[in-house]
């Protein structure tokens, strides 16, 4: 799909004119801002935040805006302030690094809600939204240990969302086989797709047959390596649907519809009953976190393992299994 931002913006403008007429009836329009630490054009972390923003626009008729900041803590506070002072009701800081700045600005704007992704904070109008990725990764770990000989995990940088996911994977694999070998490598950034590719290739050459990359924009390099290594290497698609890149290797999809989760939270704010504690999305929220198996690929997960995974998933959702650290 190719969509230039220009046509996209024109579309948004036309749409907002169309919806703004009935929306005039409301006392004030809901405005939502988004701060992301990089480009939303890449298939990765920033895109997830952007999709959430779009979801709020489409489903709640909000007026939206986003700003792609470089990863610079000094500029966060100003961006929050810019939005808050322009009457934005909800501002999503997409990443734990936005938390300190939001707390600071929140003191001056008590009527604005500051949502922070990948955070477990709750202080007044600053609310953390955490997608517990250790849960789906736990399931992947179980599948890896049952179907493979050795697993490989390629990470971007050593930050909580990624550490959390990998911890879940390791716990899941160990729950099946305590000695199941897992190797782990970080490429040290989120841009170098070639490094992600080579890291995955090297793991595969050292015997890994179940590889999951998790490096935001660079993730795609990992799937490419998996695809080039033949159908004996298995993987799971994470966050987005990467099956077109590695159609012969991907057993299933973990897709986080973070947008659904954010829309629900924003809806509660709009209705005047905002969350009273920090929000954690997990397997208990099937609308947000979907974990599905593929049937159209050359390899698929056998029925008995699927049943087992389903049982474990239910236990995680019920809070009976702890997946994280």
């Amino acid at each position: 799909m190719k969509l230039s931002r220009r046509t996209f913006l024109e579309g948004v403008a036309a749409l907002s004119i169309a919806v703004s007429v009935p929306a005039m009836a409301h006392a004030e329009d809901l405005k939502m801002g988004l701060l992301v630490p990089g480009s939303v054009s890449e298939e990765g972390w920033n895109r997830i935040g952007y999709n959430a923003l779009k979801g709020v626009e489409e489903q709640l008729g909000a007026k939206i805006s986003y700003v792609e900041l470089q990863q610079n803590p000094a500029s966060f506070e100003k961006a929050f302030r810019d939005y808050a002072s322009q009457g934005y009701k909800v501002i999503l800081g997409h990443g734990f690094e936005f938390q300190d700045a939001a707390l600071e600005v929140a003191l001056d704007y008590p009527d604005t809600y500051f949502l922070i992704s990948s955070s477990s904070i709750h202080e007044g109008n600053v609310i953390g939204l955490n997608t517990d990725t250790s849960q789906p990764f736990y399931l992947m770990g179980v599948i890896a240990a049952k179907m493979g000989r050795k697993a490989g995990l390629v990470g971007g940088m050593e930050i909580p969302p990624i550490q959390q996911a990998f911890a879940g994977f390791k716990n899941g694999a160990k729950s099946v086989n305590p000695d199941f070998p897992i190797s782990e490598a970080y490429i040290g950034n989120f841009t170098d797709t070639t490094a992600a590719k080579e890291a995955a290739l090297s793991m595969i050459s050292q015997g890994a047959d179940f590889v999951v990359p998790n490096a935001s924009g660079a993730t795609v390099g990992g799937y490419q390596a998996i695809s080039e290594s033949g159908p004996d290497v298995r993987s799971f698609s994470i966050f987005s649907d990467f099956t077109p890149v590695a159609p012969n290797n991907i057993l299933g999809l973990y897709v986080a519809d973070y947008a659904q989760g954010v829309v629900e939270v924003v809806r509660t704010i709009k209705d005047g009953s905002p969350p009273t504690e920090n929000v954690v999305f997990g397997l208990k929220d099937p609308k947000v976190m979907s974990f599905t198996f593929r049937d159209d690929g050359p390899v698929s997960v056998p029925e008995d393992i699927r049943a087992e995974v389903k049982a474990i998933s239910d236990k995680i959702a019920a809070g009976e299994i702890k997946t994280g650290e």
């Binding site: 931002r5 480009s39 805006s65 986003y66 700003v67 792609e68 500029s75 961006a79 810019d82 322009q86």
Partner: peptide, 16 residues
């Protein structure tokens, strides 16, 4: 630099 952030917020021009 400061203005480029304002520019993206108000007009969605890439800040780069």
């Amino acid at each position: 630099r400061s203005g480029s952030e304002v520019l993206q917020i108000t007009s969605q021009v890439p800040q780069v």
